[in-house]
Amino acid sequence: MTAADPARERARQEARALADRLAHGERRAIAQAISHVEDGTRVGRHFLDLVYERTGRARRVGITGPPGAGKSTLVHVLACLLRREGMRVGVLAVDPTSPFSGGAILGDRVRMPSATGDDGLFVRSMAARGNLGGVAATTYEASEVLEAAGFDWILIETVGVGQSELEVVELADTTVLLLVPESGDAVQVMKAGIMEAADIFVVNKFDREGGDRLITHIETALQLADWNREGGWRPPVCPVIATREEGVDEVRQEIGRHLAWLSGDRERLQRVRRDKIERRVRVLLRRALVEGAWAMAHIEERLQAEIGRIAAREVSPYRWVEKILRGWRYRTG
C-alpha cells in the first residue's frame, strides 16, 4: 500500500501510457481504456484519475425507451447529423446481460452501420453486467474516457427500459425518451418514473396508428403536472419516423434548445452538475466501501459456511447479518 508497491507502480505506468496514446488520438487506446474501466481494474482507476481534469466539456445526451422503440436507429441518425455539423461523436450503447449465464448479445451495431474510416465517430457496446438501472455501473466512467478522448457529444443509449430504470438521467445533461404509438393510454403517461425524467419526448414510428393520440395524452399530462420544473423547461414532444430520418432534425434542435436553457442560468447549471457529481461520488464511495468491507471481513467465506444452516432454518438471516455487523463494529473500534 506504499508508494513502493510494485503492482501499483506498474498499473500507474500502464495508465500513463494509455493516457498518452489516447491524447494522440489512438482509437485502440480509447477502446482499451473503456475495457479497463468496465472491468474495474487498477489501471482503469489510475487512468480515470489522470484524465479527470480533461472531462466535463462534452454534451451528454441519454436516449432511453422501451425495447424496440427505435433507440439505436435514432442514435445512428442523430450521430450522422452531428457529424455533418463537424462534431466528434461518441456513442455508448448498453444492452442487457443474462442473469443466467452472465453473457450478453450486444446488437446495437446492427442498426448503426459505422462509417468506416471516420475518426470522428466512436461506437462502443456495453453489457449492463447485472446493473438494473438501464445502463452499466461503469457507463458514466466510459463516457469520461470518451470525453477525455476529445469527443464533443456523447450519446448514451440505454437498454430497453420499463417504467423505472432512470439511471441515465444521472449521466446525461439531456434525456430523450422514445415512445411508440402503442406505448399506452392517458393513465400510463401520468405515472411516476420515466415519464417525469424526460427532457424531450419522441413519438417514434409516427406513421403508425395512434401517434396523434399519444402526443395529445403526453401534452395533457404535462399540463396537468403543471410542469413547474425549475426554470420552467417544458418538455417538447417530437413526432419522428427514425428509419426515414423524418423529424430527427427537430429532435436535434430541441436538444440544442434544452442545452441552451440549461446553460442559460450559470448558477443553475453549476448546481445541477455539482449535485450530479456529488451523487456520483456517493455511488463510487459506497461501492468501494462495500467491496472493501466484504473482502476485509471475509464475508464471502463466512456466508458460504453458514448458508446451509440459514436455508435449513436453523439460523435466521436476520440474526446472521446482525452478527456480521457486530463483529465489524468491534473490529473497526
Binding site: G103, L106, G107, R109
Partner: peptide
C-alpha cells in the same frame, strides 16, 4: 451459444 457460455457477443449483422 456464445451468450449462453457467458461471453459478451458483439453481433454486427
Amino acid at each position: 451459444a456464445f451468450r449462453d457460455a457467458g461471453f459478451e457477443v458483439i453481433y454486427t449483422g
